[in-house]
Structure formats: structure tokens, C-alpha cells
Amino acid sequence: MTDFPIIRVVTKLLIPYILLFAFYVQFHGDYGPGGGFQAGVIFAAAIILYGLVFGLAAVKKVAPPIVIEKLMAAGVLVYAGTGIATIALGGKFLDYDVLEHHFLTEYHFPSGQHLGIFLVECGVGITVTAVMTMIFYTFAGRRQSP
């Protein structure tokens, strides 16, 4: 894509807005439409766009495959860890009501439901971003057989 400077410049201008929109969808997913899955796909789309325009080697410098592999596991751990924490606090798996802490209300800590949903959606968003990016790396790295 070095022959298309307009595409490269427009991509550099668009990627921050795509990432900002992904964060908006992520952090407002418990209040309206959207959430972890949608935000993860939007975030991965920004990474994939960068890879399509600047090449696989360039995107692997920005988001190395080893980091993406660790993020896949970290997202699942955040999701499952939230469920394990609710069990440890005496509730059922992903029973957000046990995350309620009345002694933290003076610090404007989110309620148990909001905290639980936020953590689960963050885990989903991280996992989806990492998996979609790794799928792109896998397909883009294939060589055509002669």
C-alpha cells in the first residue's frame, strides 16, 4: 500500500476514532446497546485495518502475537475470575448481588450489578479483540501454494 498515500493518511486519521468508539461501546454497554463483544470486534477492526494498510509486519510490531496470546487468556481469566469471586463470596456463579459493598458507597464505588457486568464485559471485550486479531494474523500469514 505504499503506492496509495491517501489511504495511509486517512487510515492514520481514522484509527484513533475507531478505537475511541470501541471504548465508548465497551464502557457504556451496561447502559445501552453494545458491550464486550461489539467493542472487541470494533477494536480488532482497527488493528486489522492497520494491518491491511501497513502490512502484517507493521501490525505485529504494534501488537506482537505473544501479547495477543496472553490477552486471549487474560480475558477469559477476567470473565471466569468474576464468576469464581462471586462463588467465593457465597453466591452462585456470576451472581453479581454478592459483589455489593455498602461500606464503599462514600467513594462512589459501582453497585454489585454494575461492577459484575463491567468486569464480565471487559473480559469478553479483551478476549474477542485478541481472538479476532489472532485470526487475522493466521490468515494473513498464510502463503499461497504454487
Rank of each mutant, 00 (worst) to 15 (best):
E100S: 03
P64Q: 15
L52N: 14
V41H: 01
T82W: 05
L89S: 05
T11C: 12
A39W: 02
G125V: 05
F23Y: 13
Y137W: 09
L94Y: 08
G81H: 03
L49K: 00
I18P: 01
G123Q: 04
T129Y: 05
Y137A: 05
G83D: 03
F139L: 15
F93Q: 06
L115F: 11
H114D: 15
G32M: 12
G141N: 09
H108R: 13
Y50R: 08
L52W: 12
F27L: 13
T2F: 07
G40D: 06
P146C: 09
P33G: 12
T11Y: 06
V67P: 00
P16Y: 07
Y96E: 03
G123D: 04
I135L: 15
F23C: 13
R143G: 15
V10K: 10
L99T: 03
Q113N: 10
F37H: 06
E106D: 11
H28L: 10
G91W: 04
G51N: 06
I117P: 00
F139Q: 10
Y31N: 12
I6D: 15
D3V: 11
L52G: 12
I42E: 00
G83I: 06
G29E: 10
T2D: 11
A22M: 06
I66W: 12
G35F: 03
L94C: 06
F103R: 00
L99K: 01
P16G: 08
H102K: 04
F103P: 00
Q26T: 05
G51I: 03
G81E: 03
G112P: 01
Y137N: 07
F103W: 12
P5Q: 10
T133P: 04
D95V: 09
A73Y: 10
I47V: 15
V41G: 02
V9C: 02
A57M: 09
G75F: 03
L71N: 03
T129R: 02
E121P: 02
K60Y: 08
G90M: 09
Y96H: 10
M1T: 08
A140E: 11
L94K: 03
Q26G: 02
E106Q: 09
F109R: 00
I87D: 02
V10I: 15
L104E: 00
P64T: 15
I7H: 10
G51Q: 02
G112M: 05
A63Q: 06
E121R: 01
K60T: 10
S145Q: 09
R8F: 05
F54W: 11
D95E: 14
G112L: 05
T2A: 11
G55C: 08
A88H: 01
F4H: 14
T86D: 09
I126R: 01
G116D: 05
V9Q: 09
G90H: 08
A88T: 04
V53P: 01
Y31E: 13
V59M: 13
P146R: 13
P64I: 15
L99C: 08
Q38H: 13
I87E: 02
I66T: 13
R143C: 10
S111H: 05
A58H: 12
T127G: 07
L56P: 06
I68M: 15
L52K: 14
K61N: 15
E100Q: 11
P33Q: 08
D30F: 13
G116S: 08
G141L: 11
F136N: 03
Q38D: 12
Q38K: 13
F139G: 07
T82P: 04
I66M: 12
